Each structure stands twice: as C-alpha cells, then as structure tokens.
Computed example of a mutant assay.
Amino acid sequence: MTPARTPVLLRAIYGLFGAAALALCVFMLVFFTRWLVSLAPVAGFLAEYPGAAPMPAGSGVGIPAWLSWTHFLNAFFLLLIIRSGVRIRGEKSPSGLWTSRRVKKRRMSLTMWFHVAVDVLWMLNGLVFVVLLFATGHWVRIVPTSWEVFPHALSALIQYVSLDWPTHSGWTGYNALQQLSYFAIVFVASPLAILTGARLSAFWPRGADRLNRLYPLDLAKAVHYPVMLFFAGFAVVHVGLVFATGALRNLNAMYAGQDAVNWTGFWIFTVSVLAMAGGWVAARDRVIAPIARLFGDVRMRGR
C-alpha cells in the first residue's frame, strides 16, 4: 500500500467506526427510553399528556392547495439556498463576478448572486405563505395557543425516541412537537436567516458605521451558517418521519389534498423530487450566468 493512500484508508476506517458508534448510541438511547416509558410516573405523564397540540376544535382542518404549493416551493428554494451556501463556503476563488449596473461598487461572486436571488424568491414565497396562513385561519396549526403544548411536546419526543410514534393526523392537525418545530422554522429560524443573510450580502449599507457597530459582521457570520444547518437537519428528520409514520397518508394530505391512503400523493411527491433534482443539476454557472446578466454585468473568470 502506498503512503499516499494510507491517510485515505485511515479516514475511511475512522468514518466506519464513527458511524458504528453513532448507531450504537442511537440503539442505546431507544432502549433506555423504552425502559423509561415502562416506569409508572412516566407512563402516567404520557397518559395525561398524549402529545396532541392543544388548539381550537375543528380549526385548520385539511390541507388547501396554496399550502401544498408553498410547501413545495419552500423545499425547492431551500435546497438551492443550501447548495449555493455550501458552495460559497468552499469557494476559494469565484468562477464569475456579478456587478450591479446602477451601483458599480456593488459586486459579488456569481455564486453569491445566485444565493441572494434564490433567497428573494424564498422570502416572497414565505410572505405569501404567512399572509394566507393568517387570512385562512390555518395559523392555529403551527402557532401554539396554550402553554400545555410544552408537556405535550415532551411527551411526543419521548414517544418518538422510543419508536412508539405519537398519534397524529396531518389532515386535522399536528402533534405538539411538530407544532413547535414548524413554529420555530417559520417564525424563528427563517427571520434569523433573513436578517443575518442581509447583513452578509453586498446590499448591506457598508457606510452606516453606527448600524454596523450595533450589528457586527462577525455576529451575522456566527449565526447564519448554524441556521442553515438547522434547516438541513430539520429537512432530513422531517422527511424521515413522513415516511416512517404513514407515508401514503402523509403524502396524500400534503400533495394531493385528501385524507386517504392511496398512491396519488406519492406520485405527485415523486414528480416534485424530480423537479428538485433538476434544479440541483441546473444550478451551475452556465445556467446561472445568462440569468444574472439580465440584472447586471457578469464577467466569468479568465474572460
């Protein structure tokens, strides 16, 4: 074995051991939680707080078409945001440079321009979602209306970890842990992503010394990337639980707008995944550059 291959092999071995250790920790956590649930005080707690999100009876029932569409677009734009964000962090030398035609000093890498452009589309979609959420009364699905949501959320978490899934129906409402998670995504993580992203962008007023002292660049950097990781982690867990807790019914509710167990929602979901995969593949310089030229001047590296 050549010396050059030794570090690669060691990294692979360390990776396998790390994955095995993580899997062992997960199994131990599950078995510990199942033992915990068998104790009388914990069983009594789960009986008193089964995990349902307290909300007004009969409100927010069903998944309207606008929610399905904004849900898909949110996932589509987030995928591109994460893709471009990861590329920005690893880009030592930009492949292209975008410059505003109105403000010549306003310039950024082509990847950064794409990141900001998709951010704007994501924010517009989010604005439509929030307006319709409150206009139609569906806000009660993701906004807690009682302090009891917290013990119910703890109960749901215990049930999830024990692999004894809490009873829920995406058609009529979410369990308490889902409700808190969606509330955090929409009303906490999303505003943080927007505020920190604005501070890091070329559109931030660099000459506003007082504002820049109140909101330092380092603070925005320290928050923005962890927020992106939170979005990515949430997406993985969210999709995993959709498939683990009744995939056909869950997909039908969100994508087909019906409370039924059939394959309609699954096939619509499949088409949406293909569209997202197409967007991922298309998000490259030869596609981005012509679009960026509609809004400014683009100079590719070496030209």
Rank of each mutant, 00 (worst) to 15 (best):
F266G: 10
V42L: 02
L294Q: 05
L177W: 11
F76K: 04
I81V: 14
F203G: 02
G58K: 03
P56G: 09
L132S: 07
A117N: 09
E48D: 03
I63Y: 12
P166K: 03
H168E: 01
A275S: 08
M1F: 02
T172N: 06
N262Q: 10
V86S: 08
S155E: 00
R102D: 10
R299F: 07
Y225Q: 03
R102C: 01
S84Y: 06
L248Q: 11
G126F: 14
D218T: 03
M28A: 12
R199A: 13
T172I: 06
M28P: 01
S181M: 13
L10A: 10
W204L: 07
R303D: 13
G197M: 11
I88F: 10
F266W: 08
P3C: 02
F231H: 02
V116L: 13
V37K: 01
W66S: 06
N252F: 07
N175M: 04
N250I: 06
F45G: 02
R141D: 02
T270H: 05
A232Q: 02
T33P: 10
S190Y: 15
T6Q: 04
Y174H: 11
Y255N: 04
V271A: 14
G302M: 05
K105D: 13
I185R: 06
N252S: 07
Y160D: 00
V116Y: 14
Y255I: 08
F134Y: 14
S93F: 11
Q178Y: 15
D164K: 04
Y225K: 01
N74D: 04
L78R: 04
F31D: 15
I81Y: 06
L163I: 00
L177D: 07
T145C: 05
F266V: 15
P3T: 03
A184R: 09
S59W: 05
A193L: 14
F295W: 08
T70H: 03
H152K: 02
E148S: 01
R89N: 13
A43L: 03
Y255T: 10
A40N: 13
V140E: 04
P191N: 10
L294K: 10
I158G: 01
L180S: 14
L211R: 06
I158P: 00
V26C: 09
M55P: 04
V26R: 07
T245P: 03
G278W: 15
L133R: 05
H238P: 00
P144L: 03
M300C: 09
R11H: 09
T172V: 10
A282H: 09
R199E: 08
I81W: 09
A202S: 12
A117F: 15
R5G: 03
I142S: 00
K221H: 05
S155V: 00
A193W: 06
A247R: 05
L192W: 14
P94Q: 06
L251Y: 01
Y215M: 14
D285P: 13
N250K: 02
H115Q: 11
L154D: 00
A202V: 15
V103W: 09
L22N: 00
L29A: 11
G296E: 15
I288R: 01
N175F: 11
N125V: 06
L248T: 03
